[in-house]
Structure formats: C-alpha cells, structure tokens
Design a protein around this nucleic acid. Sequence first.
DNA 1: CCTTTGACTCACT
DNA 2: CAGTGAGCCAAAG
Length: 127
Amino acid sequence: MPTKKSTEKLKAVLPSGKKDSNFFEQVYDVARQIPRGRVTSYGAIAVFLGTKMSARMVGWAMNGAHTLKDIPAHRVVNRNGMLSGKMHFATPTRMEELLKKEKIKVVDDTIVDFEKKFWNPAIELTI
DNA sequence: CCTTTGACTCACT
DNA sequence: CAGTGAGCCAAAG
C-alpha cells in the first residue's frame, strides 16, 4: 500500500503549515486518486474519512487543496453532481471546462450521468 | 479564547 | 413537491 508516498507529501499539505492535520491529509490523498473522467462527492469522501455527517470539512479541505494545485478539486462536487464549488476556482467556468475535458458532460452546472461517473473512494480504495 | 463561517447533507414542515 | 432549519466538525479571524 503506497501510503508512504502520501506521508512524504505531508510537508506541503497544509496551507497553515500544520502537518498534523490528518483530516486534510486524507482528503487530499483521496482527491488525488480520483481517476480521470470520474467524479466523487464531498459526502462520499466524508464517509470514507469517517466523518460522514460533516461533508463540509471536505469542502473546507478542498479550499486548502486549491493552493496545492495537485488536487483535482473539479472532480469533487456535491451529492447532486452540481458544481457548487465552481465559484472558488480561478474563474467560475474553469471547473466546468476541466470536467468537459475529461469527457464529463456538464449542463446547467450539473454533471450529466453523475451516478454513472461517480467514483466511490470507500469502494475503490477499499479500506 | 470565543465567534463566525464554510466548495454539505439530512430531515422536518 | 419545495423551502427552511438544524446538525455536523474544523479552521480562520
């Protein structure tokens, strides 16, 4: 299990320079592993992390992930498949375009066939 | 240290 | 069926 690799990255993971925040680490680790052309939801990641009720934290972590640029935050949307976080990108249309580049159809700020493109970390990563 | 907020979700009205 | 409220946890101010 390539967990060691994630540990290396720990040094630059947090915006505040705090490397003890295991929560953020996990969120970033999962987000990085989202396959191209697939998407997941904040809630799914939250469940995977064990804090299923608090998907907000995932979104908050994504905010920090924005600085790292190695995190495909555009592949993470809310449970409806709507690009709720698009406004947090450089441009509101950036997220949409990134998704379209990955063959993901986006209509009205919502991912088409979201359930079909859905990537469940709890299953794919099989903890 | 206490208050506010935040890219969510579920549930009740 | 749609809207509003509350719950959840952690970080930033």
